[in-house]
Amino acid sequence: MKINGTYLVHLPQERAYALLQDPEILAKCMPGCDRLDKVAENEYEMKMKMAIASMSGLFDGRVKLADQQPPSSFRLLVEGKGKIGFLKGDGLLKIETGDETTNVIYEGDVQIGGTMAAVGQRLLDTTSKMMIKRFFDKFAEVTRDLKTPGPVPAQLQD
């Protein structure tokens, strides 16, 4: 399924670009994720607990950052597999500058498999949108105090 959308973040472009790739920030913002463990350059593993209403599932996940074009775009690949199926997301995030604010434009593809695919098609669109919204809402929240340029998080320095 194709997804796309635009979110406004109250951060300068370079700051948004950096924070959107900061594993600590990502871990905080990705729904159901507590922690990212680095397994390779720009590649992380995680445990995700996805919960929508009464439904929930545990996933072994993997996040990869690729095609980085600072400060304007990068690709975010998310994969998860669990007993109720698997999911794969591949999105291009474009960070476009305004003055004080920045637009994050994403477009990508979500694939699901297993039980989730068979029974969840009715809700795939709605819940994908909701998950992305939750991500950006959380992002806005956790980056509220990081507006001013500061040291780039350690993980991105090397």
Binding site: Q111, G113, T115, A118, Q121
Partner: peptide, 14 residues
Amino acid sequence: YDDNGQLITGELMD
């Protein structure tokens, strides 16, 4: 079936 071969009408809900 979707392009990846997942049967998305996998239940009587769909």
